[in-house]
Design a binder for these strands. Structure first.
Length: 551
RNA sequence: UGUCCGAUAGUAUAAGGGUAGUACGACAGUUUUUGGUACUGUUUGUCUUGGUUCGAAUCCAGGUCGGACAACCA
């Protein structure tokens, strides 16, 4: 009875390969370089690779592409593993390109022996000059025709540490006139006297991406090596090495990377935001990193759903942030407890409420399958309500509080605004209401219908909390595409801190896992900065708001 | 000036020679003790010019536009 969902182009390739018997077992891999934190774009690749083997059987490896020791750190390895697990995926093998350094070295020797690689010793500038341009062919290096013996000898010495960085490099001998720049004798090994996060100082030569990635895929018998579009032109080289090395023929397929409005996704730029303290860290709730989204209150499910909805194709795309927001609202609507918090308070006094205090019952979540249970909410004659729920001169179609107007206090009574007090600056400081005793929520016999319901917190019982409101990180939808520095387009109002908001007492028990809807205000979660005497809440996302502001 | 990749509503994504569909967004309405949720409805699209064909988003050719490629990064 399940609905027929159309396949994306990669699923089609996989199904064909499986049905034709080309492969018995599907093997994919997720291959991050441990040089930064994973972001939502990586989540797309993670969901694709792991999703494929969940759907079609087989397995997915986690392989760290750690061939450049100067940018990589164990800290990143750890965070990347944590993020993948948090998203809900399990890899079969935890592997590292650096596990294959010996094998990769012997692949290079094999290439030299076949006359398909040579040691060059001209400078980087000279190499670039001889490379030609996309429209002009390159020229051979004077060292291109060294003998196999000499190449082997120098390459061995490179490995042994006899030379400083940059003195020699190993190049594949392909075609200096190829229309594909990557085929113009690409560099495959360079000398780098640097400590590697895993192999330490064992090596002073390291393979380049192109001489490590495809070979690693092949060693692991990866059947479908899925990467983003910028690697299309690498595919020719990928296949060339596999063919010449005569190893397992993994195949590379490319899909369009995710772009999201109002943020940046490149690791270089994210690192800049972190290093220049423009955000509080990789896990700043405004960051598009997995850790940032987690801290912001996103759930793994919502991110998986998002990745499902954006689809997989080869067209360049720019996804609207509103889709991500839709996904998290959809999830949280079903799971978040409804509670009351007043962010921008103003005092409301019920002049005819005699009783000092009263316990009311609140439903935690009518949207949840089990209703979410109930809780006690203390009520009294002095409440905090939201400042913008009162208008001295009501706008048209205003159904909140205004002089003479009636609203329901959520879970409580209907009140009528009788009067209000202003300070010397003309700001309203207090609203005086009368309540209708027969209108109590649950057994309302008043017969009165009001259009508006507002949230509140009993002043006498309220706790205070710091609340952090987040907005998009950039004012431009495409900060990457703007003139000048992308940082010029940072949104100065991306974080607004309310140090003293009022929350209902039940919220004092909030924990890091909890998800809350502050009624009419949005979805919130506790931040890790919270302490026993100071709770801090992050706004994950606002509620959808279709009320047109009077202006 | 070269090679490669791509082009379907505002944004994404289907339709693989036979009725252009879905989601998000936007707009309107119903319900509602959250101006939320739920439900209903409306809206807007095949880059262009030719060709093949009874029939083209789909196949072919040219054009236009967008992206990628000249790191001892991945």
């Amino acid at each position: 009875m399940s609905e027929e969902k159309s396949l994306n182009f990669i699923e089609e390739i996989v199904e064909n390969d499986l049905n034709s018997g080309k492969y018995e077992t599907l093997v994919t891999r997720f291959p991050p370089e441990p040089n930064g934190y994973l972001h939502i774009g990586h989540a797309k690749a993670i969901c694709l690779n792991f999703g494929l083997t969940q759907k079609y059987g087989g397995y997915t490896n986690l392989r760290f592409d750690d061939t450049n020791p100067v940018t990589e750190k164990t800290e990143y390895v750890n965070s990347q593993q944590e993020d993948i697990k948090w998203l809900g995926f399990n890899w079969k093998n935890e592997l590292y390109a650096s596990d294959y350094f010996d094998e990769l070295y012997s692949f290079a020797v094999k290439l030299i022996e076949k006359g398909l690689a040579y040691v060059d010793e001209i400078s980087a500038d000279e190499i670039a000059a001889l490379k030609g341009t996309p429209t002009e062919p390159g020229q051979d290096s004077p060292y291109r025709n060294r003998s196999v013996e000499e190449n082997l000898d120098i390459f061995t010495k490179m490995k042994n540490g006899d030379f400083p960085d940059g003195a020699y490099i190993l190049r594949a001998k392909i075609d200096m006139a190829s229309p594909n720049m990557l085929m113009r004798d690409p560099i495959i090994y360079r000398i780098k006297h640097a400590e590697h996060h895993r192999t330490g100082n064992k090596w002073c030569i390291y393979p380049m991406y192109d001489f490590a990635h495809g070979q690693s895929d092949s060693i692991e018998n990866i059947t479908h090596s899925i990467c983003t579009l910028e690697y299309v032109s690498h595919r020719e080289l990928y296949d060339w090495f596999i063919e010449k090395l005569e190893i397992f023929p993994s195949k590379q397929y490319e899909f369009a990377r995710l772009n999201l409005t109002s943020t940046v996704m490149s690791k270089r730029k994210l690192l800049q935001l972190v290093n220049e303290n423009l955000v509080s860290g990789w896990d700043d709730p405004r960051m598009p990193t997995i850790s940032g989204l987690r801290r912001r209150g996103f759930t793994p499910k919502s991110i998986r759903e998002f990745c499902e909805r954006i689809g997989i194709a080869k067209r360049e795309n720019l996804i609207e942030l509103s889709l991500l927001e839709f996904c998290i609202r959809e999830d949280l609507n079903k799971t978040a407890s409804r509670v009351m918090a007043v962010l921008d308070p103003i005092k409301l006094i019920i002049t005819n409420y005699e009783k000092g205090t009263e316990d009311l019952i609140g439903e935690n979540n009518p949207e949840a399958e089990d209703g979410g249970g109930t809780r006690v909410i203390p009520f009294s004659n002095e409440l905090w309500i939201e400042r913008d729920d009162f208008m001295e001169v009501p706008a048209k179609k205003w159904f909140r509080l205004a002089p003479g107007a009636m609203v329901r206090l959520k879970f409580a009574y209907i009140v009528k605004c009788e009067d209000f007090v202003k300070d010397e600056n003309g700001n309203v400081t207090e609203i005086h209401c009368t309540y209708i005793p027969e209108s109590k929520s649950g057994n309302d016999t008043s017969g009165i219908n009001v259009k508006g319901t507002i949230h509140w917190v009993s002043a006498q019982h309220a706790k205070t909390a710091e609340i952090r409101l987040y907005d998009r990180l950039f004012t431009s939808e495409t900060p990457d595409a703007e003139e000048g520095d992308f940082k010029d387009y940072l949104n100065p109002e991306s974080l607004k801190v309310l140090p003293n908001a009022y929350i209902e007492p039940a919220l004092a028990d909030a924990d890091l896992e909890g998800r809350y809807q502050f009624i009419r205000k949005g979805y919130f979660c506790l931040d890790k900065d919270s302490t026993a005497d100071k709770l801090v809440f992050n706004r994950t996302v606002t509620l959808k708001d279709t009320f047109k502001k009077p202006n």
